[in-house]
Amino acid sequence: MLSSHLMSEVAQTADRLVVVGRGRLLAETTRRCPSGSRVRSRRVLWEPSRELGFHVLRHTYASVMLEAGESIVSLAMWLGHSDPAFTLRTYTHFMPQAGARGLSAIEAWFTDLG
């Protein structure tokens, strides 16, 4: 949501709001020149950072899938990565339980031996 300050600024200075590529919010104003031609100007009001844009949704999706136990290979395919190793390098930090199953398995194996 836009703050009330931003909305009042837009209402006073722009004809309309325009959202363009990657979520940038622009204020667009159209004026007539003395010659009669129309001149359109745009200025950026807000531009999402990488952390606030669509990219964060990809990371959220990936982290939820990994936490649910989905495989890196499946996740790589769903994200459109050509190499599961890239997905693994990128999203390893979202796998806090990585290795826990292996540790549990080896502990159980040793317990069964003794």
Rank of each mutant, 00 (worst) to 15 (best):
L103E: 08
S74E: 03
L79K: 01
S74D: 09
R42L: 12
G69K: 04
P84W: 08
L57D: 08
P48T: 11
Q97Y: 01
W78H: 02
R16I: 03
S3E: 10
A14H: 11
D112N: 13
M65G: 02
A105V: 05
L75M: 10
T13V: 07
S71H: 03
R50Y: 01
M77Q: 07
R31S: 14
F110Y: 11
R32P: 00
A100Q: 13
A100R: 10
G114K: 12
L2M: 14
E67G: 07
T111L: 07
W78K: 01
F94G: 04
V10Q: 10
T92G: 05
P48Q: 13
T13L: 09
V64Q: 09
V44F: 09
T92R: 11
S82N: 09
T13I: 05
S63D: 07
Y91V: 02
M95P: 03
V20Y: 12
H5S: 10
T92I: 08
H93T: 03
L6V: 07
R58Y: 08
R42I: 00
L2H: 06
G114D: 14
S3C: 08
R89L: 09
M1T: 05
A62L: 02
E70I: 02
E107D: 09
T90Y: 02
G102T: 10
A98R: 15
H5Y: 09
G23W: 13
Y61N: 00
E47H: 12
G69F: 11
A11C: 02
V56N: 02
T29P: 01
S49A: 12
M7Y: 07
S37R: 15
R24K: 12
F86D: 11
G99P: 05
V20A: 14
L66A: 11
S63L: 00
G80Y: 03
A11H: 01
H55V: 14
S4V: 11
W109R: 10
L6Y: 04
R22I: 01
D15P: 09
G102V: 03
A68W: 06
G53F: 10
A62Q: 02
E9M: 12
G21E: 15
S8C: 10
R22P: 00
S63I: 01
C33A: 15
C33W: 04
T87D: 10
R40I: 15
H81S: 05
D83F: 06
